[in-house]
Design a protein around this nucleic acid. Sequence first.
DNA 1: ATATTTTAGTTACAATTGAAACCAACTGCA
DNA 2: TGCAGTTGGTTTCAATTGTAACTAAAATAT
Lengths: 151, 151
Amino acid sequence: MPGHALLELETFLPYRLSVLSNTLSQAIARVYEKRFNLSVTEWRAMAVLGHCSDISAREVAERTAMDKVAVSRAVARLLAKGHIERSTASHDKRQSVLRLSDEGWKIYDQVAPLALEHEQRLLAHLDEEERQWLTRILETLWQAELVESKR
Amino acid sequence: MPGHALLELETFLPYRLSVLSNTLSQAIARVYEKRFNLSVTEWRAMAVLGHCSDISAREVAERTAMDKVAVSRAVARLLAKGHIERSTASHDKRQSVLRLSDEGWKIYDQVAPLALEHEQRLLAHLDEEERQWLTRILETLWQAELVESKR
DNA sequence: ATATTTTAGTTACAATTGAAACCAACTGCA
DNA sequence: TGCAGTTGGTTTCAATTGTAACTAAAATAT
């Protein structure tokens, strides 16, 4: 194609990141889905609550980078399944206070190791030096995107 | 949370990749959308056709990592907008032969530089050494995931 | 040749998602 | 106090997407 801009999708960073992360997420998602009947959004909410409990839906949204509608729906389904419990914040009756139920913890304790194992299996393809670079680079890009998207 | 698996979402690789690539894609997508009325799938199809012309829908699907239904719909919309043209392969009447129209090339020639520029702006946060590592690492993970997902 | 299976692409229907409207509770300020 | 503007969360409706079924053409087998 003479005279046209040279964009090769296969080497285009945003595209590569997108495809890589999608195949990756879907691979894990399939496991959540089949074995535990959890969608990605549901699992993300649970993951956050497993790590810091008694937070509001808004805070779950912030920490998972999901929007509040998605969180609202995930919370509704998790409540229905009994994986989480909800009460109302005493200082602000709009806010909910969310935490994993005993049942939820049982799920969490099964899924979390699986997720970590999957991550390890992926990282096993890299040597220690590569892993350190990757962490560093992702951190940098993450920060860069954050400030970009805030504008 | 004593006695529970330690999964911190913020440092979990699949999660980081997912959030990073989503915010990244959306940032570019917004530009496609607003300025050129193109969805991400539509643009991806056009990007592939800009790079190698006269290929079938199946081949577009392969090269964009989208499924054939998504491609079919993107193609339908691009045809309706007049951005691409379609004929039938002489050696196999099932296959379509797709290419950008003159109109399509005009769009392509505007969007492609924008996309490349966005990529450059992002990469500008990294030094040359980091960029090389990133390319290498993504390539490795890409290959690793490909073989994983084929099983 | 003809029946069977596979492949390219589309269509139909259900499930998921996103945007905007909405409600209730809080904040700040006159 | 009371009223305008925010904020947390839900609901509604439309658009997007995924799955499965489908058609037509080609490849393979009988």
